[in-house]
């Protein structure tokens, strides 16, 4: 565990905490994409199947459980909570995510390190995570008044991805035989997806303006 990896994981954790707090405190999930949250739920379920097969560390297991539990909590709130579900932007959150899920799954069937159920599902989760934020970014574009917490949520998620790239560079330089090309390429794609958002986020922060993304 290096400092970049730890910082990346913490950003990921903070992003989820920010989202949980925002929804819970304001009793509103306005601007939050249920589709992205559901994609993350699929990502975490497929990736963390190894909770049942291998133990890496208490840290690893705890984080996996937190990510799973928090994502399902958010989905539950958005779908079923009697106050919160009313605030969901159903008409705006129209990204057809089956067009992300199917290609990612087919790609994982073809491009993987080992043709086993566990490994294909793990690879699928890597590909799907790279594009899972897209429904959220599209929804932000359609939202006129992006509240600070939603903006911060996406910014923290993007920071987590950027820090993971630094983690991979560090590991590549310090660990013999450490390489995972599929993860690296997907991770770079995933980070590129955020670049546009980062630009507008930092600009609005510097100019002390409310964040808005051009359509």
């Amino acid at each position: 565990m290096n400092i970049f990896r730890l910082a990346g994981d913490m950003m990921h954790l903070f992003s989820i905490i920010v989202l949980l707090l925002k929804i819970n405190a304001t009793r509103s999930c306005r601007g939050v994409s249920l589709k992205t949250q559901e994609l993350y739920a699929i990502v975490f379920v497929c990736r963390y199947l190894d909770l049942f097969t291998s133990f890496i560390s208490l840290y690893n297991t705890t984080m996996k459980l937190i990510f799973l539990l928090s994502t399902f909590t958010i989905i539950y709130w958005m779908r079923f909570h009697k106050v919160i579900r009313v605030t969901y932007d159903r008409e705006q959150d129209t990204f057809r995510y089956q067009f992300l899920i199917l290609p990612c799954f087919l790609l994982a069937l073809v491009l993987n390190n080992e043709f086993s159920a566990m490994e294909v599902l793990w690879t699928f989760s890597i590909y799907l995570e790279a594009v899972a934020i897209l429904p959220q970014l599209v929804l932000l574009q359609r939202t006129n008044n992006i509240d600070n917490l939603t903006g911060n949520y996406v910014f923290l998620l993007g920071s987590y991805r950027a820090l993971y790239i630094l983690n991979w560079i560090y590991r590549f330089m310090t660990e013999p035989n450490y390489r995972q090309y599929l993860v690296w390429i997907s991770g770079i794609v995933q980070t590129i997806v955020y670049i546009d958002f980062f630009y507008y986020y930092i600009r609005s922060w510097r100019n002390n303006e409310k964040l808005s993304l051009p359509a």
Partner: peptide, 10 residues
């Protein structure tokens, strides 16, 4: 054969 890769990242 099976590599049984252990994925240690989240």
């Amino acid at each position: 054969g099976s590599t049984g890769a252990v994925h240690d990242e989240l």
